[in-house]
Amino acid sequence: MIQKALLVLLVLISLKSNSQTLETVYKLKSNYQKCLDKGIDMRGCSLKYYNQSDSLLNVAYNNLKSKISSKEQSKLKKEQVEWLKKRDQFFEKIYSDTKKEGHFKEGTQDFEMIVLDEEAKFVFGRVKELIKRS
């Protein structure tokens, strides 16, 4: 719990100091790849990367929301609710597809790593979209 709070704090600080640019996203991806390249606790690397994507999504959403009119905020909220529905559907599909492929046994760390990686990529897609609109 403390690690997650610290992670959120670090992401927030990095966003403020980097003016919330796409560079932040690319730096997180680079750090993720470096973590994977170590070959140690790769599932942990993927979980951290996913958590970073989720934290950054919240920051990017709130940053954009703070810069637009209340009418635009209402539209953004509806758009985000629709995106969340698509996200949930995508996550279910990724899980199902990964299970069907049979390369990794369900419940193993490799299976979870593949799923988390795909989920993070999807969320970072939305993050990039929100940042570009800020």
Rank of each mutant, 00 (worst) to 15 (best):
S66A: 08
E23S: 10
Y49V: 04
G39F: 10
A5Q: 09
Q33G: 04
N63T: 03
S69C: 02
L28Y: 11
V59S: 09
S69K: 01
L56Y: 05
K4I: 10
K16D: 14
K4T: 09
E23T: 08
K48A: 14
A60C: 02
E72L: 04
Y49Q: 11
S19D: 08
K65I: 01
G44E: 13
S19R: 15
A5Y: 06
K4Y: 01
Q3V: 13
L7S: 09
D37M: 08
N31V: 12
Q20T: 14
D37G: 02
S55E: 01
K71R: 07
N18R: 13
Q3S: 14
Q3E: 13
Q33M: 11
K4E: 04
K29D: 12
Q52D: 15
L7N: 11
L64Q: 04
D54S: 15
Y26T: 14
S70Q: 08
L22M: 05
I40T: 05
L22F: 04
I68S: 00
L28A: 09
L10F: 11
Y26Q: 15
N58G: 11
D37S: 11
N62H: 00
G44P: 10
S66V: 01
N63I: 03
Y61D: 03
K4G: 01
Y49A: 04
K67P: 05
Q33D: 07
L28H: 08
S17Y: 15
L64P: 05
L57V: 05
Q33F: 07
Q33A: 07
V8L: 11
Y49H: 12
K71P: 01
A60G: 00
N18Q: 15
Y32G: 02
E72H: 03
V25L: 00
S69I: 04
L28G: 03
L47P: 04
S46G: 09
K38V: 03
V59F: 13
D54W: 09
Y49N: 08
S30Q: 13
